[in-house]
Simulated assay, not measured.
Amino acid sequence: MHGEFKVPGGKLVVVDLEVVDGRIRDFRLAGDFFLEPDDALAAIDAAIEGLPAETDARKLAAAVQAALPEGAVLLGFAPESVATAIRRAITTTTDWSDYEWELLHPGPLPANMHLALDEVLTQEVGEGRRRPTLRIWEWSERTVVIGSFQSVRNEVDAVEAEREGFRVVRRISGGGAMYIEPGSAVTYSLYVPGELVQGMTFADSYAYLDDWVIQALQGLGIDAVYKPLNDISSPTGKIGGAAQKRLGGGGVLHHVTMSYDMDGEKMSRVLRIGREKLSDKGTTSAAKRVDPLRSQTGLPREEIIERMLDTFRSLHGLAPGELTPEELAHAEQLVADKFGTEEWLHRVP
């Protein structure tokens, strides 16, 4: 069995192994990482040899860590990277290059239609009726999108939201609130088969699926980094955040919103951003929480999106696509039955 894991921002970790009578045999670690001293490689191989094939990633990483000689230096990877590569070798996994990727970039849509499309397209990819897809969002209305488990009244000042003309909606993924004005954000969704992130922890999958956009931002001259669990940041502040949802049919939704030109003062009135949340970001003012892409690039939003798509295309390939009539009809029905209902919006009051 063969497994590979490209560490986001790091090196490639490769493992080869056999499973005999339920145990890992003939284990070999390789890659373009840096490791000192030389005999640490043999120590890692010996630590994994003979472990049960069902050993989870946490225990595999602990075994690697325990086997390292005192003072060992790992550059470009970590014990957790080895564990991920092992789990990907033993389970059914795929890579970006195993798929033909499709791009969807329709015109502006209402917020609830965006959320319904996320559910529909994740199902379609998971069940094999659609190729893995990247969708760029265009917004037709001012919107606050709260996470699946957030409380409406805790997150949104209803009076200010109504005064400023913001629609409040709830998405299917967890995480925090998104504050959106048309033209002020860059939002995209990835709809991928579960096999692409099989064997990864949730934290690893966030970094793995965000790696292409980190490269795109760096190509724009932004010193962008991935900040666990789900933030994309630069030295001057947070750029955006990601969220995920995994559906029973096997599809994975990974979506990201990055600020292009945000009115932080208005955001601080519409959203209830408490001191505890701000302290987590290392700031004291909501207006300073998100560093807009425009201030860091000087480029129009449309050019930033095109440059991002160029990066994705160069890395993984990307062909233009269209939403099918069936997908649109299904999404419209979901808006009527779920996303547009008071029951869904206030399921956590």
Rank of each mutant, 00 (worst) to 15 (best):
H2C: 01
E4K: 03
K6W: 12
V7W: 02
V7Y: 05
G10E: 01
G10A: 06
V13K: 01
D16E: 15
G22V: 13
R28Y: 07
F33C: 04
F34R: 13
D39S: 08
A43N: 02
D45L: 11
D56C: 14
L60G: 00
A62C: 11
Q65A: 08
P69I: 02
E70D: 10
V73A: 14
V82C: 07
A83N: 04
A85H: 04
I86E: 00
I86A: 02
R87Y: 08
R88S: 07
I90P: 04
T92C: 08
T94G: 04
Y99M: 05
L103D: 02
L109A: 08
M113V: 15
L115G: 00
A116K: 00
A116H: 01
V120H: 01
L121S: 01
G128F: 06
R129M: 12
R129K: 10
T133Y: 00
T133W: 00
T133P: 00
R135A: 14
E138H: 13
S140N: 03
G147V: 15
Q150V: 09
V152N: 04
V152T: 13
E155Y: 04
V159C: 03
A161T: 14
A161Q: 08
E162T: 10
G175R: 14
A177Y: 03
A185F: 09
T187R: 07
L190K: 00
Y191I: 13
G194E: 07
Q198A: 15
T201R: 03
F202G: 01
S205H: 07
W212Y: 14
W212H: 08
I214H: 01
Q218H: 06
I222H: 02
D223K: 05
D231C: 11
A242I: 06
A242D: 12
A243K: 07
K245D: 10
G249R: 08
G251W: 03
H254V: 10
V256E: 02
V256Q: 04
M262R: 11
G264W: 05
G264E: 06
M267S: 07
R272W: 11
K277D: 11
K277T: 15
D280H: 09
D280K: 15
K281V: 11
A287L: 03
R289I: 15
T297H: 07
G298S: 08
E303P: 09
D310Q: 13
T311S: 05
S314M: 11
H316M: 15
L318M: 04
G321D: 07
L323C: 02
E327W: 03
Q333R: 13
V335P: 00
D337V: 11
K338A: 09
T341A: 08
T341V: 12
R347T: 10
